[in-house]
Write a protein that binds this DNA or RNA. Structure first.
Lengths: 145, 145
DNA sequence: TGTCTAATCTTGAATCGTTCCAGAAAAGGT
DNA sequence: ACCTTTTCTGGAACGATTCAAGATTAGACA
């Protein structure tokens, strides 16, 4: 899973131009999945020096458009990005600190697509967000009480 | 289902003050579930005249805090509100127009709480969002092609 | 029924995340 | 090397939401 594919390969494979900001963004996401834009921008700047916020947004949009990255938006959180795509996995989000972890789909490959009553909608994706408390925050809460 | 409980009763039952804006917001939500703040504000103003946007936000927060309303935030959409609470139901969202419909949980009462690997998280809710195309937009898309 | 106080509402400004715009820079095919 | 198209920069703008301070009001209690 943690196969950190060469960013250059990924970009070429998707028929995209290889630019420093893009490579840096992919590297940043490989090291820190579920990062928000600010975090990604900070990481990229650490590596490259000055890069405009706009460039980060543009790169992330380009990556998600071609399917190299995925954008998730848990309620109350800014957009988060990850490189793991195409396997219909889900997420657990910590109510306390916002930490996010991956969760493989519990029901197989294309599972949750079954809604009891779809109201005539054509459903193509089921997105599951588990809400709870992460190990760290659980510890803190117990200590506090 | 469409039991439009008396807003005043609901508020009293929750130990909340009964104010015109609150009653109007509840009425608006009863008639148009899954409304965004702007929509709710418009409906409330139609009924009461001038009400500040802030008041709408305050009322909605108060209602969600006591559990009379529920806030949902589909990715890319402003917050939506509904009165149907406590039954762990889910939503279908139209990718084209943003229309939202309710979907009863397919797996029973407290179902989706089972994650394959919870990474040590304590999970208390599973939120499912189905993405697809609503009947209206399906028709339009077919006509266009 | 009048008084009092905490809860609520108004007005207006501020914040956050994100997008739009126009021009400068640069990747990569020819 | 050159040229076209894509990408990046800088700065302004935007929508949704929240913050802050003071005026108003619902409802408990005398």
């Amino acid at each position: 899973m943690q196969t950190v594919d060469d960013p250059v390969e990924l970009l070429r494979g998707a028929g995209m131009r290889v630019t420093r900001p893009r490579v840096a963004v992919i590297s940043a996401l490989a090291l820190a999945p579920h990062s928000e834009v600010d975090r990604i921008a900070a990481d990229v700047r650490t590596e490259l020096g000055g890069v405009s916020t706009q460039a980060i947004y543009d790169v992330l949009r380009a990556l998600t458009d071609v399917g190299l990255a995925r954008r998730i938006e848990p309620a109350g959180s800014p957009a988060l990005f990850e490189l793991r795509v195409g396997d219909n996995h889900h997420h657990v989000v910590c109510r306390e600190c916002g930490a996010v972890a991956d969760v493989d789909c519990a029901h197989g490959s294309a599972p949750c697509l079954t809604a009891s009553d779809n109201h005539g909608f054509t459903i193509d994706e089921a997105e599951v967000t588990y809400w709870g408390t992460c190990p760290d925050c659980t510890t803190v809460l117990e200590t506090t009480n």
